[in-house]
Design a protein around this nucleic acid. Sequence first.
DNA 1: CTAATTATGTCAACATAGCTGACATAAATT
DNA 2: AATTTATGTCAGCTATGTTGACATAATTAG
Lengths: 175, 175
Amino acid sequence: MTSPIQPSEPRQETEVDDEVDFTLIELLFFAYRDFTSDPDAILASYGFGRAHHRVLHFVNRRPGLTVAELLEVLSITKQSLARVLKQLVDTGHIVQVQGPRDRRQRELYPTKKGRALALALALPQSRRIHAALDEAGIEDRAALERFLRAMVNPELRTQLDRRSSKATREQGEEE
Amino acid sequence: MTSPIQPSEPRQETEVDDEVDFTLIELLFFAYRDFTSDPDAILASYGFGRAHHRVLHFVNRRPGLTVAELLEVLSITKQSLARVLKQLVDTGHIVQVQGPRDRRQRELYPTKKGRALALALALPQSRRIHAALDEAGIEDRAALERFLRAMVNPELRTQLDRRSSKATREQGEEE
DNA sequence: CTAATTATGTCAACATAGCTGACATAAATT
DNA sequence: AATTTATGTCAGCTATGTTGACATAATTAG
């Protein structure tokens, strides 16, 4: 068994075996793994999974978006959405309203209950983010936002800004 | 169609409806979604999924780690790992070596083929990261690393630094 | 007005990747 | 010699995604 040659100089920050940034790849993996772990306990107590979380999040953020718009943001099929959305409607977290201009469309709105759950799920994630910003001593939050935005496929970046144009329209308070 | 009321002042950066940082939550979601999308096409052509990617990544990064260590890093059960690992072994991407001190253990090593695939999968991710760093004009990469590290649960941060302690041990070249 | 298209819903079958529980084996430890 | 540990394996279940086919109602095009 040949023992490997020890390099005379310590390993450089830039890995030798690659032109590939394994460090940041791995940091993203771990950061996101724990970031998504926060809401899981809450969801489990509702019998919900991450799919419900994503749907509720976007309906809460873009009230009045249509089924088609939601499918586009989530990049899933309508059959996948159907099960999860039905449960959220049945449990009174989301309501479907016939579109005013186009009555084929179903606009999706969170109920009070839905907004409360969306907030409860977002809170630990928000806390984690801010604790990390503090701990890391991040002064330039805007730079982090720019970086994350730049990680998104250019053709999909419109999804980032596109808060619902209907967000300020009339919303009958339901439930 | 009632046209929405235009606020007299533009929306503040700090959202009004929440003490919750929806902006960064959503940016993390989209950034990670597209970050993980890169390797999917490659994996599909091998008949592999993201589970294979994660296993191969960590075996490549921590050559010689044991099955138990891999389970800990991935936070999955051995039954979940079994199917995926078996496929990677059968296709010659990973080899299992009986542990030298403890012969019950199986140390996992990537083959040349495995290393090549791990690199091919990591390349587009690394390119995306560096393009984003450039585009966002990130000068302080260390700050980003600190932030991502701080996002990880403290008790799990040891996983970040723990490059395999056996990485420099003998590795017979196989395949 | 009729025909075609669109938005949505639904049924059925399937794939992937996770899970629990139970049990087996070999090696190490007590 | 008995127990514990590391791993493997079988069986069945769940969550979340997929495709394909078809139905309905509403809008749009001709």
